[in-house]
Amino acid sequence: MELTRRKILALSAGSVAFATLSSLPAFASLTDDAIAELTGGADVGEGTIKLTAPEIAENGNTVPIEVDAPGAVEVTLYADGNPVPNVATFKFGPLSASRSASTRIRLATTQNVVAVAKMEDGSFQMAKANVKVTIGGCGG
């Protein structure tokens, strides 16, 4: 990926306001590429896994995200408006009680968070959530 000044600014932890003001181009294709790399181009179904994220994030530095993917062996999270789309991959081991996990992530701007699950039978499932990231006033 070519790093332009604008893209570098985008993920700076403290520069949510910058990113939003600089009207970022869509990075959806980067996320699509990353998903294709994971799935090898296989079809990705929807509907069996659940992604919970706030509709509006008060601060893009710390956005709570929860994924619940029954029957998954692993789940990868992407953020399609960040300069680097990959966020995290959860691999569930034999003593995992549920295929669910929560974490806190950084979102550079208003965008989609995407969860792609690799299921036990080798198929793929995904879920999407749009998160609006607000511009700080004095908080920003």
């Binding site: 932890a13 601060n59 530095n61 710390t62 511009i135 700080g136 006033g137 004095c138 908080g139 920003g140």
Partner: peptide, 23 residues
């Protein structure tokens, strides 16, 4: 609102405070 921020009364009963802004 001051832009997208919600103005409080500036109370200090919670300090020191962990801010999401600077973690």
């Amino acid at each position: 609102m001051i832009r997208a921020d919600h103005l409080s009364q500036g109370q200090i009963n919670g300090f020191p405070t962990y801010r999401l802004k600077n973690a």
